[in-house]
Structure formats: structure tokens, C-alpha cells
Amino acid sequence: MSLAAPASTGTAAPARPPRRRGGSGRHRAWIPLLFISPWLVGFLVFMAYPVVYTGYLSLTDYDVINDPTFLGLDNYRELVSDEKVMLALRNTFVYTLMSVPAQLVFSLVLALLLQRAGRAAGFFRTAFFLPKMTPPVAVGVLLLMLLNGQSGLLNELLGWFGINGPNWTTDPDWVKPGLVVTSLWTVGSSVIILLAALQQVPDELLDAARVDGASWWRRLWHVVLPIISPTIYFIVVVDTIASLQSFTEAYTAFFGAGNTTYSNDAALFYAIYLFQQAFEFLHMGYASAMAVLLFAIVMVVTAVQVMLSRRYVHYTGGAR
């Protein structure tokens, strides 16, 4: 598609008045289509078709080798009575309910600290973001080692304060809190987004609140947080969707070929069980039904968050 005939456009161009937004109107219809064609093809082949086909497969029994056999709603019936699905759902919800608020509060505290860091802010910001670059597999390895119950660094630190740290990697009650602690290490991007929002809070408003005698805490609660609430909302939505699908750290640390020595039920997230069903047991139909359910859950959770946002999120100014 190199050099699409410059002469043909040259003749029509001079007559056209200059336009303001979004470019000029009268081109051959296929030219914009040519530009967006990569996405168009990709959307049809790798998005629209797979979503529809997942829906179809969820009604079948399919192992990749033999053709799919139609089952009707059997997969869904099995899904509701599958104890492991229920366990995976519970694990995923519990983890999401713990990790999303914990990450939000932690990253907000860090952003507030950074805001007062003055000239050194750049250095600290770099330090806080660095773990976000770490491959999640390596994060999983670090979890196993640093949070190891007997010889891990975290429990050694807790020991300095006389606290007898739990077995983060083997005690079913402490596996999910351990994953939450680990997730706090990679809040770097939330910190940066929140810091950018904090820097947009107008000084005049804070000064006015200070004059009225509002304490630091009241200024934060009644001025700063309402103003940055769209950003907080954005982070909560994105983090929730990500947590509901979390896979790599937990899979690395607790699943795979070698882990037969201890129970890993506590770390069985929904995405992990889905992956196992599809690619370890080759239950493609059943896994597709699980995928449809996950899709529905993400949609419902997001819809609930949109409804809640109407009450709690303040948009200053007009349309976003």
C-alpha cells in the first residue's frame, strides 16, 4: 500500500475549505477504511467471532480432537454443582474484596506522601514504580521466597517486633492475605495516576478550606477526595476487573507441574481453574461455559460500579 497515487487527491484539494476538527470529509470512502482495516479484520477474527464461538462451545462437549457434540445447557448445570467452581469463585471474590481496597488505600497514602516530597519526588516515584516492571512470574517466585513461613524475609522482619509470622505460602487461611501483600508491591501505576490527579486539585480550594479552619484530615476527606473521585473510581473499576481475572502470580507460586506436596485449594482462582479445564484437561466446552460466566460476572460487577458512581463520584465541569 505504499504511495497511494498522490496526483488524484491533488486535483480536488484546493477547492476544499479548511475544516476544524477530525479532518477533511470528501475522500474516497475506501481510504479511511484502508487505514482502519487492520483493526477491522482483527476485531472480526479475534474478537467478535471468538466471543460468539465461545458462546456456542459452552453448549457442547469438545476436546479439540473430536468434533463438538451438542449438549444444550448441561455444562451450565454442571457448573452450578461443581464444588471447585464454587471454591474458585469464592477465592476470587474474597481476594478481590481484600486486594482492591488495600491497593487503593496504600497507593493513595503513597501518592499523598509523594505530593509532599518536594524536589525528591521523582526519585521516590521511580522507586515505587520499579516493581511494576517486574515480570509477574518473578513476582510469584519472590512471593514463595520472601513470604516463606520458616525462612522468609517478611517473617524475619515481623520477628523483630515479636510477631510470629504465619505460613503465608502453605496455611490455607494465609495464602490469600499473602497474595494481597504481594499485590501491594505492584501498585506503582495507581500511585502515579493518583499523584497526577492530586496535582490537579486547585490550591485555591485548599486555601479556602484552611482559612475556614478545616484540619488536614477534613480537607482530605471533604475537598481532595471528592475532587479526585473520578480517578479513584477509574482505579477501582480497572483493579476490580483485573483482580477478578488474576492468574499469573498465584499460578506461578501454587500450580503447575511440580506442586504436589501441599494443598493449593486456597489459591485456586477462577481464571486458574478455567485455564486448567481448557488447556490441561482439554474440556473446551466446559471451560467455555466458565468463560461465559466470568464475562457475565465482570459485566454485572461493572454495571453495579457504574450505578454506585452516580452517587459517589463528582465530576467537576462538563462531559468527561
Binding site: 479475534f46 474478537m47 471468538p50 464461538y53 465461545t54 481475572q245 471451560a287 466470568l294
Partner: peptide
């Protein structure tokens, strides 16, 4: 759209 919804196809 969650990745899982397109992963298998």
C-alpha cells in the same frame, strides 16, 4: 471484554 471470553477460540 475479558481475555477468557476469547481465549479458547
Amino acid at each position: 471484554i475479558p481475555g477468557a471470553a476469547t481465549m479458547i477460540p
